[in-house]
Design a protein around this nucleic acid. Sequence first.
DNA 1: GATTCCTTTCGACGTTCGTCGTACATCGAA
DNA 2: TTCGATGTACGACGAACGTCGAAAGGAATC
Lengths: 107, 107
Amino acid sequence: MAHARRPALVHPEAADLNLYAVLHALADPTRLTIVRTLREDLERACGTFPVSVAPSTLTHHFRVLREAGVIHQREDGNRRWTTLRYDDLQSRFPGVVDTVLQAETGP
Amino acid sequence: MAHARRPALVHPEAADLNLYAVLHALADPTRLTIVRTLREDLERACGTFPVSVAPSTLTHHFRVLREAGVIHQREDGNRRWTTLRYDDLQSRFPGVVDTVLQAETGP
DNA sequence: GATTCCTTTCGACGTTCGTCGTACATCGAA
DNA sequence: TTCGATGTACGACGAACGTCGAAAGGAATC
């Protein structure tokens, strides 16, 4: 049996994604910056996002995004790699992510 | 000089609409129901929305929507008529309202 | 082993949220 | 003028939020 490492990361099923939770997750500048970065870069480690908050605050924002089903995180040694669950979001809430990102930057 | 009636309702300018405030305003079932109703019916009085919360709670939700610039309210005697600021929203954040409403009802 | 790096957990803080009941103000109608 | 209908203002409540610092964990490296 494998050693008990960190507690396994919880990701909701695509079918369980909740629109209100997703909208709430997107309604924050720091988190929307994370989403935008992932929309362009596919996968990144936690510490490499262009945001300026304390590390523990960043962890909090990642949890909000993860529990809303917006991002997926996987462990890899020391690092935690993050991806956008774009296909799941697109299938449940078509166009929401892109429309919101487009709205943030302006026309 | 005119009598001091109710305090005048405050509506932000279209140029001042804030995406995070709008998303937050939409991230609630009661408020999204209000928006959907207005998207279909143009103008309604406060008490005629298909929601089930206390009147004072409804007033709170209207204030959140109004201060985010999502709705417009005008006084008319006893009543307060509410409309969706669809054109303003569309010009500042194109597609956001319709995409979100569509996402709520599902494919 | 010791050290360093990346990230989390915990506790704390002030703020905001969604909800409600009560009281109040206004208007139109009886 | 009195009454009912409409909607607000206020205060309260528990819960959640966004933020941070301190401490700790695990993994990689020395």
